[in-house]
Protein backbone atom coordinates (compact mmCIF):
# COMPACT_ATOMS: atom_id res chain seq x y z
CA UNK A 1 0.00 0.00 0.00
CA UNK A 2 1.21 3.48 -0.83
CA UNK A 3 2.27 5.80 1.93
CA UNK A 4 -0.06 8.54 3.19
CA UNK A 5 2.70 11.10 2.89
CA UNK A 6 6.05 10.79 1.14
CA UNK A 7 8.57 13.57 1.40
CA UNK A 8 11.83 13.39 -0.57
CA UNK A 9 14.78 15.79 -0.26
CA UNK A 10 12.56 18.73 0.61
CA UNK A 11 14.20 22.16 0.71
CA UNK A 12 12.65 25.48 1.61
CA UNK A 13 14.21 28.92 1.83
CA UNK A 14 12.86 32.16 3.24
CA UNK A 15 15.02 34.58 1.28
CA UNK A 16 18.59 33.54 2.06
CA UNK A 17 17.58 31.62 5.18
CA UNK A 18 17.19 27.89 4.67
CA UNK A 19 14.20 26.79 6.75
CA UNK A 20 14.19 23.13 5.66
CA UNK A 21 17.24 21.10 4.60
CA UNK A 22 16.88 17.87 2.66
CA UNK A 23 13.94 16.56 4.62
CA UNK A 24 13.02 12.90 3.99
CA UNK A 25 9.94 11.61 5.75
CA UNK A 26 7.41 8.89 5.02
CA UNK A 27 4.17 8.52 6.87
CA UNK A 28 2.08 5.34 6.61
CA UNK A 29 -1.70 5.30 6.69
CA UNK A 30 -2.91 5.43 10.24
CA UNK A 31 0.47 6.43 11.63
CA UNK A 32 0.70 9.07 14.39
CA UNK A 33 3.79 11.21 14.25
CA UNK A 34 4.87 13.79 16.79
CA UNK A 35 7.40 16.40 15.69
CA UNK A 36 9.32 18.27 18.37
CA UNK A 37 12.31 20.54 18.48
CA UNK A 38 13.41 24.01 19.52
CA UNK A 39 11.59 27.01 18.09
CA UNK A 40 12.78 28.02 14.65
CA UNK A 41 13.70 24.43 13.84
CA UNK A 42 11.31 24.25 10.87
CA UNK A 43 8.61 22.02 12.41
CA UNK A 44 5.74 24.31 11.49
CA UNK A 45 7.19 25.09 8.09
CA UNK A 46 7.38 21.36 7.36
CA UNK A 47 3.72 20.68 8.05
CA UNK A 48 2.69 23.90 6.32
CA UNK A 49 4.46 22.59 3.21
CA UNK A 50 2.47 19.36 3.43
CA UNK A 51 -0.83 21.18 2.92
CA UNK A 52 0.79 23.77 0.66
CA UNK A 53 0.26 26.79 2.88
CA UNK A 54 3.95 27.27 2.04
CA UNK A 55 5.48 26.45 -1.33
CA UNK A 56 8.62 24.34 -1.20
CA UNK A 57 11.61 25.26 -3.31
CA UNK A 58 12.85 21.80 -4.22
CA UNK A 59 12.12 18.17 -3.47
CA UNK A 60 8.95 16.15 -3.68
CA UNK A 61 5.91 15.92 -1.47
CA UNK A 62 3.40 13.22 -2.32
CA UNK A 63 0.18 13.20 -0.35
CA UNK A 64 -2.20 10.32 -0.88
CA UNK A 65 -0.52 9.47 -4.21
CA UNK A 66 -0.87 13.00 -5.54
CA UNK A 67 2.35 14.89 -6.04
CA UNK A 68 2.26 18.42 -4.71
CA UNK A 69 3.75 20.58 -7.38
CA UNK A 70 3.05 24.23 -7.94
CA UNK A 71 0.13 22.96 -9.99
CA UNK A 72 -3.01 24.64 -8.66
CA UNK A 73 -5.31 21.69 -9.37
CA UNK A 74 -3.21 19.28 -7.29
CA UNK A 75 -3.10 21.74 -4.41
CA UNK A 76 -6.87 22.14 -4.46
CA UNK A 77 -7.38 18.36 -4.65
CA UNK A 78 -5.24 17.83 -1.57
CA UNK A 79 -6.46 20.90 0.30
CA UNK A 80 -9.68 19.30 1.42
CA UNK A 81 -8.12 15.89 2.23
CA UNK A 82 -5.60 17.29 4.69
CA UNK A 83 -7.08 18.91 7.77
CA UNK A 84 -5.11 21.48 9.72
CA UNK A 85 -5.41 22.80 13.25
CA UNK A 86 -3.60 26.04 14.04
CA UNK A 87 -2.03 27.34 17.22
CA UNK A 88 -4.27 30.43 17.07
CA UNK A 89 -7.46 28.42 16.25
CA UNK A 90 -8.32 30.74 13.32
CA UNK A 91 -12.06 30.25 13.69
CA UNK A 92 -14.23 32.51 11.54
CA UNK A 93 -15.36 35.11 14.10
CA UNK A 94 -18.35 36.37 12.11
CA UNK A 95 -19.95 32.91 11.93
CA UNK A 96 -21.54 30.81 14.66
CA UNK A 97 -19.87 27.56 15.74
CA UNK A 98 -22.29 25.57 13.59
CA UNK A 99 -21.71 27.83 10.57
CA UNK A 100 -17.94 27.46 11.02
CA UNK A 101 -18.44 23.71 10.76
CA UNK A 102 -20.87 23.64 7.84
CA UNK A 103 -19.13 26.19 5.58
CA UNK A 104 -16.66 23.71 4.06
CA UNK A 105 -19.04 20.75 3.71
CA UNK A 106 -21.75 22.83 1.99
CA UNK A 107 -19.51 24.92 -0.29
CA UNK A 108 -16.77 22.39 -1.09
CA UNK A 109 -18.35 18.96 -0.62
CA UNK A 110 -21.77 20.00 -1.91
CA UNK A 111 -23.72 18.73 1.10
CA UNK A 112 -27.17 20.15 1.76
CA UNK A 113 -27.51 22.38 4.77
CA UNK A 114 -29.36 19.77 6.81
CA UNK A 115 -26.83 17.04 5.97
CA UNK A 116 -23.97 19.36 6.87
CA UNK A 117 -25.62 20.38 10.14
CA UNK A 118 -26.29 16.79 11.05
CA UNK A 119 -22.66 15.93 10.44
CA UNK A 120 -21.53 19.01 12.36
CA UNK A 121 -23.64 18.09 15.39
CA UNK A 122 -22.31 14.51 15.33
CA UNK A 123 -18.76 15.82 15.38
CA UNK A 124 -19.51 18.42 18.05
CA UNK A 125 -20.77 15.52 20.21
CA UNK A 126 -17.50 13.80 19.57
CA UNK A 127 -15.45 16.79 20.76
CA UNK A 128 -17.95 17.12 23.60
CA UNK A 129 -19.33 20.59 23.02
CA UNK A 130 -22.71 20.05 21.26
CA UNK A 131 -24.28 22.67 23.53
CA UNK A 132 -22.05 25.41 22.05
CA UNK A 133 -23.31 24.95 18.47
CA UNK A 134 -25.22 28.21 18.25
CA UNK A 135 -22.73 30.44 20.04
CA UNK A 136 -20.22 32.79 18.43
CA UNK A 137 -16.56 31.72 18.71
CA UNK A 138 -15.78 34.78 20.86
CA UNK A 139 -18.10 33.44 23.58
CA UNK A 140 -16.07 30.25 24.02
CA UNK A 141 -13.00 29.49 26.11
CA UNK A 142 -9.70 28.82 24.36
CA UNK A 143 -10.00 25.08 24.85
CA UNK A 144 -13.52 25.09 23.44
CA UNK A 145 -12.42 27.20 20.48
CA UNK A 146 -9.63 24.78 19.67
CA UNK A 147 -12.05 21.86 19.86
CA UNK A 148 -14.34 23.70 17.44
CA UNK A 149 -11.33 24.19 15.14
CA UNK A 150 -10.62 20.44 15.28
CA UNK A 151 -14.30 19.73 14.61
CA UNK A 152 -14.25 22.14 11.66
CA UNK A 153 -11.43 20.12 10.09
CA UNK A 154 -13.12 16.80 10.85
CA UNK A 155 -16.31 17.94 9.12
CA UNK A 156 -14.39 17.78 5.84
CA UNK A 157 -13.65 14.10 6.61
CA UNK A 158 -9.93 14.49 5.94
CA UNK A 159 -7.62 11.53 5.43
CA UNK A 160 -4.77 13.21 7.26
CA UNK A 161 -4.78 15.69 10.14
CA UNK A 162 -1.98 18.16 10.83
CA UNK A 163 -1.71 19.91 14.19
CA UNK A 164 0.51 22.98 14.47
CA UNK A 165 1.20 23.43 18.21
CA UNK A 166 -2.49 23.00 19.01
CA UNK A 167 -2.11 23.65 22.75
CA UNK A 168 0.56 26.37 22.79
CA UNK A 169 -1.90 29.25 22.96
CA UNK A 170 -4.00 27.63 25.71
CA UNK A 171 -4.13 28.17 29.45
CA UNK A 172 -2.73 25.12 31.26
CA UNK A 173 -6.11 23.92 32.55
CA UNK A 174 -7.46 23.71 29.02
CA UNK A 175 -4.64 21.72 27.49
CA UNK A 176 -5.94 18.36 28.67
CA UNK A 177 -9.39 18.72 27.10
CA UNK A 178 -7.85 19.43 23.70
CA UNK A 179 -5.25 16.66 23.97
CA UNK A 180 -7.99 14.18 24.94
CA UNK A 181 -9.78 14.95 21.69
CA UNK A 182 -6.57 14.43 19.71
CA UNK A 183 -5.82 11.14 21.53
CA UNK A 184 -9.36 10.00 20.79
CA UNK A 185 -8.76 10.70 17.10
CA UNK A 186 -5.44 8.90 17.23
CA UNK A 187 -7.04 5.82 18.75
CA UNK A 188 -9.56 5.91 15.94
CA UNK A 189 -6.79 5.35 13.41
CA UNK A 190 -6.51 8.83 11.93
CA UNK A 191 -3.22 9.53 10.16
CA UNK A 192 -1.77 12.54 11.92
CA UNK A 193 1.27 14.71 12.34
CA UNK A 194 1.37 16.75 15.53
CA UNK A 195 3.87 19.50 16.23
CA UNK A 196 3.91 19.88 20.01
CA UNK A 197 5.95 20.30 23.14
CA UNK A 198 3.55 18.14 25.15
CA UNK A 199 5.80 15.16 25.78
CA UNK A 200 3.27 13.34 27.94
CA UNK A 201 0.90 13.38 25.00
CA UNK A 202 3.70 12.22 22.70
CA UNK A 203 4.42 9.15 24.87
CA UNK A 204 0.73 8.35 25.00
CA UNK A 205 -0.24 8.80 21.36
CA UNK A 206 2.78 8.77 19.05
CA UNK A 207 3.90 5.83 16.93
CA UNK A 208 7.02 7.69 15.99
CA UNK A 209 8.89 10.73 17.27
CA UNK A 210 10.68 13.15 14.95
CA UNK A 211 13.21 15.59 16.39
CA UNK A 212 14.11 18.61 14.27
CA UNK A 213 16.71 21.30 14.72
CA UNK A 214 17.83 24.08 12.37
CA UNK A 215 15.72 22.82 9.49
CA UNK A 216 16.92 19.22 9.62
CA UNK A 217 15.53 15.97 10.96
CA UNK A 218 18.11 14.99 13.57
CA UNK A 219 16.55 11.94 15.05
CA UNK A 220 13.57 9.71 14.46
CA UNK A 221 12.29 6.69 16.35
CA UNK A 222 9.69 4.99 18.52
CA UNK A 223 8.74 7.09 21.57
CA UNK A 224 10.20 4.54 24.00
CA UNK A 225 13.67 4.61 22.42
CA UNK A 226 13.45 8.30 21.75
CA UNK A 227 12.76 9.31 25.33
CA UNK A 228 14.88 6.69 27.08
CA UNK A 229 17.85 6.52 24.78
CA UNK A 230 18.23 9.56 22.55
CA UNK A 231 21.14 9.01 20.19
CA UNK A 232 22.30 12.55 19.53
CA UNK A 233 23.53 15.23 21.91
CA UNK A 234 21.28 17.90 20.50
CA UNK A 235 18.27 15.75 21.18
CA UNK A 236 19.48 14.91 24.71
CA UNK A 237 19.94 18.58 25.50
CA UNK A 238 16.50 19.44 24.15
CA UNK A 239 14.79 16.65 26.09
CA UNK A 240 16.60 17.66 29.28
CA UNK A 241 15.44 21.23 28.87
CA UNK A 242 11.79 20.49 28.34
CA UNK A 243 11.43 17.51 30.64
CA UNK A 244 12.96 19.36 33.59
CA UNK A 245 9.81 21.34 34.21
Amino acid sequence: MAKAIEIKRLNKWFGSYQALKDIDLNVSHGERIVICGPSGSGKSTLIRCINSLEHHDSGEITVDDIELSQNKASIAAIGAEVGMVFQQFNLFPHLSVLQNLTLGPTKVRGLSRSEAEERAMRILERVQIPEQAHKQPSELSGGQQQRVAIARSLCMEPKIMLFDEPTSALDPEMIAEVLDVIVDLAEDGMTMIVVTHEMGFARRAADRMVFMDKGEIIEMGAPKDFFEAPKTNRCKTFLNQILQH
Partner: peptide, 19 residues
Protein backbone atom coordinates in the same frame (compact mmCIF):
# COMPACT_ATOMS: atom_id res chain seq x y z
CA UNK B 1 -4.83 33.00 9.54
CA UNK B 2 -8.38 33.45 8.23
CA UNK B 3 -7.27 32.89 4.64
CA UNK B 4 -5.16 29.91 5.71
CA UNK B 5 -8.02 28.35 7.67
CA UNK B 6 -10.33 28.82 4.68
CA UNK B 7 -7.76 27.14 2.45
CA UNK B 8 -7.41 24.14 4.77
CA UNK B 9 -11.14 23.44 4.55
CA UNK B 10 -10.86 23.51 0.77
CA UNK B 11 -12.42 26.89 -0.06
CA UNK B 12 -11.12 28.42 -3.28
CA UNK B 13 -10.14 32.06 -3.70
CA UNK B 14 -13.56 33.50 -4.52
CA UNK B 15 -15.30 31.42 -1.83
CA UNK B 16 -12.72 32.59 0.71
CA UNK B 17 -13.32 36.21 -0.26
CA UNK B 18 -17.11 35.87 -0.30
CA UNK B 19 -17.72 33.83 2.84
Amino acid sequence: GQTEAAKTIGLNYSQTMRY
